[in-house]
Design a binder for these strands. Sequence first.
DNA 1: GTAATTATTTAGCGTTCGTTACATATGTAT
DNA 2: ATACATATGTAACGAACGCTAAATAATTAC
Lengths: 201, 201
Amino acid sequence: MTGNKAVAIGRPRAFDEDKALGRALEVFWRKGYEGASIADLTAAMGINPPSLYAAFGNKEALFCRALDRYEAEHEASWNEALSAPTAYEAVKHLLMYSAASLGDKRRPPGCLMVQAALCGGKECDAVKKELDKRRDASFRLIRERLKRARREGDLPENTDPASLARYIATVLHGMAVQAAGGASRKELERVAATALRAWPE
Amino acid sequence: MTGNKAVAIGRPRAFDEDKALGRALEVFWRKGYEGASIADLTAAMGINPPSLYAAFGNKEALFCRALDRYEAEHEASWNEALSAPTAYEAVKHLLMYSAASLGDKRRPPGCLMVQAALCGGKECDAVKKELDKRRDASFRLIRERLKRARREGDLPENTDPASLARYIATVLHGMAVQAAGGASRKELERVAATALRAWPE
DNA sequence: GTAATTATTTAGCGTTCGTTACATATGTAT
DNA sequence: ATACATATGTAACGAACGCTAAATAATTAC
């Protein structure tokens, strides 16, 4: 919004927008969309409500910015995992990276995309849909990688890439639920290893 | 609370407590614990707030009663599934029953145990813990069935019942997330079938 | 300097939250 | 009939919700 211009006119922002967004992300991650109040957010961000609204618009827009940030933090690892030479390795790396990430005790437990708003009152219907859309985008990333694998003869001909991708996405979301309940990285890695045994052929 | 005594003194309750609880369950199921307001609940139950508080205590107690009801609705099917002669059949029936149940369009989508409060503000910490406890009870049901299977030689000796059970529970919770996003029974059954391919040996 | 522009603080807006006081209605016990 | 006990509807409580008006502070443009 307010420019990356070299010099902006008017009173300059007194807080670091990126850092504040990071704090907001942590709050949404721990408390969910509904559970995170403006008071929670402003306290964590170190600002007052008017500064939040001036910089980010409103609660929903701030949440979407936090979603963008969250995805950006994982994008590199996802791309690296999915670019493995074989589909099996790609999915294995994806599952193992997710186990490590979801079980990382230095950050909030679980997955923002899953737990921020699985359901809720009608005032968060839009957020629910947005999360569903982004989870579906992750599914499609996996599916496209598996489609490529089948074209390359890296998957049996009787294997449906979409079904296998749906299964992988399901395991990932299940791991997110386990993590939300406090599962450790080790436990999640065991789940991931077991899940990989369903690999075709 | 107020007795199942043949005749109770005082003004009799004007609403069907069981039916009202069923309506409350549906509201919590669709909106989650935080998202379900007392106004939502009383409207669905056809009563006023004082009647709700007199009959159920408060929002949290009502939610726990709804949890009991929810579990009771699935208990018979779980027991039936887990009493199958082999562990593989038991888990297969469990997954297939869950696919049908989670994808049933006549009821709210997803699983109350998963989506009612994966995270939230501190006022629903107790509810979060209660849900986690009950999910863990489901996990232990599966684990005990698999332990029995290993004692009976129905599982390979190098298979850890706890790890396999954790995997099954993870798939079930993942299916619940898919269902919350609108997945159909057919899709969930495909996921279940794929998940079963991870079965040991 | 003065004007213009933007950010910050304080304080509070209207609404909804979970919950309850109170008067009244409806039943049994005697 | 009177006393007692419980349920109900109305109405409202204090607190928290998301959000904003208004005054003030800090910067650039001229």
